[in-house]
Amino acid sequence: MDWAQLADVATRLAGGLPTTLLLVGQSLLIGFVLAVLVALMRVSPNPLLSAPAYGFVYVFRSTPLLVQLFLIYYGSGQFRPFFQDVGLWFLFRDAWFCAILALTLNTGAYTSEIIRGGIQSVPHGQLEAGRAVGMSPAQLFRRITFPVAIRQALPAYGNEVILMVKASSLASTITILEITGIAKTIIAQTFRPVEVFIVAGALYLAINFVATQAILYAERRLSPASAADRAKAAERRQKAMLAR
C-alpha cells in the first residue's frame, strides 16, 4: 500500500469518526444519569433499593460487553412476537438502539461504582457543617455531596471514558459502521488488514488523547489551583489506577 492509498484509507476511516463519537457520547450521557440513580440506590439504607442496584451492577460488571450486546441484539430477535405485542419491537429492530442500550447499561454499572466511591469519600464534617447552617437534605446533596463526589470521581471517570471509546468498536459486530466497521469494510475490498487496522488504531489513539486532555482540564477547573491540590489530584489518579 502506498502513501496515496493510505491517505485514502485514513479519509474513509475518519468518515466513521462522527458515528463513533455519537455512540460514545450518547451512551456516556444516558449512562451517567443512570449511574447517578443506581449509585443513590446503592447507598440507600433501604434494601428494596440497594439490592436491585447491587444485582444490576454485579451482573453487568461480571459479563463481557460482547455477550451483553449479542444478547440484546440477536437474543431479542428470538422474542420478536413478544416485543411486537408489547409495541417495543420498533426499538429492538434498530441496531443503533441495541448498541446504545448495551453500552449505556454497561457504562451505567461501572460509573455507578465510581460515583458511589465519590459519595462515600465526602468528609463527614462537611455534611455536618451543612446541616449546622440549616441545609435541607436536597440542598446538602446538590451543594455538598454531589460536587465533592464528582471531583473525587473524576480521575476514575476519565478512565471510564477511554474504556468506552474502546468498547464502542464492538458495535461493528452488529452491523454498525463506525471506525472499526468501516475498517472491516475496507479490508473486505483491499485484503490489507494490517495497514488498515494500524490507521484505525491511530485514530482511536487520537480520540483518547483528546479525551484524556479534556478530563485533565476539567480536573484542573474543578479543583482550586494550588500546588497541594494538584498533588492530591495526582494521588487520586494513582488510586483510581489501583482500583481499576
Binding site: 440477536y74 430477535g77 420478536r80 429492530r93
Partner: peptide, 18 residues
C-alpha cells in the same frame, strides 16, 4: 444495504425482520 459477518447472522436478522 446492511452487511453481516456470516450467512447465519443474516438468516437471524431476516427472521427478526431487521
Amino acid at each position: 444495504i446492511r452487511t453481516y459477518d456470516s450467512q447465519e447472522n443474516l438468516d437471524l436478522d431476516l427472521q427478526a425482520g431487521r
